[in-house]
Design a binder for these strands. Structure first.
Length: 125
RNA sequence: UCAGCCGGCUGGACGGCCGCUGCCGGAUUGCGGGCGUCUAUGGCCCAUAAAGCAAAGCCGGUGGAGGAAAGUCCGGGCUCCAUGGAGACACGGUGGCGGCUAACGGCCGCCGGGGGCGACCCCAGGGAAAGUGCCACAGAAAGCAAACCGCCCGGCGAAGCUUCGGCGAAGCAGGGUAAGGGUGAAAGGGUGCGGUAAGAGCGCACCGCGUCGGCGGCAACGUCGGUGGCAAGGCAAACCCCACCGGGAGCAAGACCAAAUAGGGGUGGCCGGACGCGCGGCAACGCGGCGUCAGGUCCGUCUUCAGACCCGUCACCCGGGUUGGUUGCUCGAGGCGCUCAGCAAUGUGCGUCCCAGAUGAAUGGCCGUCGCGGAGGCGCAAGCCUCCAGACAGAACCCGGCUUACAGGCCGGCUGACACU
């Protein structure tokens, strides 16, 4: 079953302030929902495919591939109180589906890691 | 067989797993339900297990992108805004003629001009003897026509000749000349004959042009005859003139989402505004009885005609907001087949079909097999193997067009060569 999707611009802007990880085909952003977020709806996904990556046909195709990617995801890979946004890059149209799947798997791991280790050196600056 | 022209169609197929969305049906579950959601109260309707409803979920069935869905360039439908009529002006568009169409800048047929051996293709194709303007560079000269070279004529004339009168190449100034050279996109009709000092529509023939008439055609126009006698260059996608057409904004149009507050809106009555007089009042002020005067607004501008409105007050009615929801929203100048009329565009009649309605925006994701195209290899061949390619592109209110993009494939008609009979 496909997860619920983000529909409002304000929701996208909220997730933008969270953690992000770049993969060859896309950029993944993630952030816990604010305040009284219920776990009933589960993790939600949003998709951003700008005109930079191509015309309407390729943009639609990329959006459908990314959506199919999230639909196959086992529910334990995502956090139910989180919202995720996938920002497509131009490689998403041609990259093989299995590669995209492993990219997403790695990106989720990275995004769920607590911040700190990576930023250790810059903390005092 | 090769080369080419025109028109039409098509835009991979099948299967497996997993999904999205509209509609229909069913079962389950829930509930007193519903009156959309958000805050709170009240109210209304249906009702005691039937109807109904249900955010979300389950099962089954069924429909689900294009020829250009694109560019948003024209024409309409539909919706809202604007009080209606007439005239003038302005602005924008169109431009051979006739037809088709709801309409068009579209299509069909025809005419004229140009290109091609031909099938056929191309043309912003009204007016330049109404006016204004422009014609770069080159060239003597670019719109009053004009003499650079040349040609011709007579005059003067160093050299030279001489019968001593003169003649006279070169040269000098003057005149004639648009045939030749040269410049140019274009040199003010073309070709030929006559003519002439040389030339020239100066004359003649043919062609072109203008004009008049006859004939053919609905017309654009064609054709024949007479006549004029070169007068009349190009550009109107320069201004302009002529004829015809045209309100503006767009589905984010627009409508709706019970009542109670505010802002606000509507309808009706009275009253329009300013000034003066009058009346009431101690006054501030109020009333609107009388008289005079001047307006403003009403969708391009101005004029005109008709009409309405203005500010205040009273009564009644409506009346919360939104980025949300519902609707508009898909049956339409509709598709297909036949028929009749027409050269055709197209129209008539009959039959038949229902064919996407999303809204962070569905119509798909992944995989396999086959087929098509190209390259390479193997094979006598049929064929087999490997690799590559598979375009342009995604509905957003709906139609009719135009334009642009497009891998490849299929069908039909026609033309010209060559070969054979």
């Amino acid at each position: 079953m496909a997860p619920a999707t983000l529909k409002k611009r304000s929701e996208f802007l909220w997730v933008r302030g969270g953690r992000r990880w770049s993969a060859p085909g896309f950029v993944l952003e993630a952030r816990a929902r604010s305040g009284d977020a219920d776990e009933a709806s589960g993790a939600r996904f949003g998709f951003t495919v700008s005109k930079k990556v191509g015309g309407a046909v390729t943009r639609n195709r990329i959006k459908r591939r990314l959506r199919a990617l999230t639909a196959k995801l086992p529910s334990e890979r995502t956090l139910p109180t989180f919202d995720y946004v996938l920002i497509a890059r131009s490689a998403a149209a041609d990259r093989t589906f299995t590669d995209l799947a492993s990219d997403l798997d790695q990106a989720l791991t990275r995004v769920h890691q607590p911040p700190g280790q990576k930023r250790r050196g810059a903390k005092n600056a």
